[in-house]
């Protein structure tokens, strides 16, 4: 059965609360106070930020990584881990 994030009747609820996986419905991106900003010039593509990001929000690319902000909570691990200081935490907004 399909996934119904906002059920409007009993029939929308599956028996035993067995829901389809892979549906992150809350955009945790708006939790951020600081956001990671990537300096593409400095990025050596070592992928440490990629592997450490708890949210899987850093995408691997050919030359350097790319940050997606949909679910990024701004924890700053990527900036902390980056050996070449290519990621800086900047205040939101």
């Amino acid at each position: 059965m399909g996934f119904i994030p906002n059920p409007s009747k009993l029939g929308d609820l599956p028996a035993g609360a067995a829901f389809e996986g892979g549906h992150p419905t809350t955009q945790t991106g708006n939790w951020r106070v600081f956001q990671p900003v990537l300096d593409k010039e400095k990025c050596k593509n070592c992928l440490l930020c990629w592997v450490f990001c708890p949210e899987g929000m850093i995408k691997r690319q050919e030359k350097c990584v790319e940050i997606s902000y949909d679910f990024c909570k701004g924890c700053g691990i990527c900036a902390n881990e980056c050996p070449s200081k290519a990621i800086a935490m900047a205040k939101e907004g």
Binding site: A15, G16, A17, A18, F19, E20, G21
Partner: peptide, 27 residues
Amino acid sequence: ADAVDVNHPITVSAGMAPNLYMEMRYL
């Protein structure tokens, strides 16, 4: 119908907040 299947992943007995728990119990 909703057996564990790696091709159609489901979460069995997911967490339910007060807004829906009662409906599950009613079901």
